[in-house]
Amino acid sequence: MNPQTRQITAEIAIGLVICFAAAELLLLPARRELREQRASIAGMMPTSSAVKAPDERDVARLAEANERGRREIVLRSAASKDEAALFAQIMAIADRQRIRVDQFEPGVSGHGAGSGSKATPQPDEPVRPDTVAIYNVSLSGGYAGIVRFLDELRRSLVFVNAKSIRIAPADLDAANGVRAELLVEFYGFNVPGESPDAIIRREVTP
């Protein structure tokens, strides 16, 4: 090989080395990063258009409905734990229906499933509530008022079950009046999540 050919060969080799070095140091890392970025973005994109992203409004609506449901159960359960509040509520209903509460006497109250019974109830088996409050309530007033009282009590913020109702005419001095003896159970259920006291406090705070 003559010197000129050797020199040209060397120059070609140097040129190739420069090109390969430039490609290795600049181009290949850039392309690698480009591939990684593309893969990363592709990984972040939903794989199928069939998988619909949750709608924020739907989620908010569901959360709100849950909150309402929780609040309702907590508030309805509060009657079984707070006698004073329950009495106030009963009195308020009686006032609205123009009847009188002659007696409001706690019966034998107790705790249901929430107090320790851990066995899973069968589908047909009655379920005990977490708390039960039993009251003997004596009412007097008009027949229609008693009926409306019972109806409003059913629809009010309590879980109530009237175990027995006795209605009889009142004393002679109360014209057209009746006297009703009720044995009612107020149930309470525990709801996981926010403390019931906090919910109740929030409800009563204007």
């Binding site: 569901l62 959360a63 409905a65 849950n66 449901g69 929780r70 159960i73 249901g112 499933a113 109830p121 009655p126 379920v127 005990r128 509530p129 879980f159 079950n161 149930y187 259920f189 709801v191 996981p192 999540g193």
Partner: peptide, 16 residues
């Protein structure tokens, strides 16, 4: 939450 509430509601219904 909804599932849990549903369970509580079922308990309420079965208890009442």
């Amino acid at each position: 939450d909804n599932r849990m509430l549903q369970e509580v509601r079922e308990r309420v219904v079965r208890a009442v």
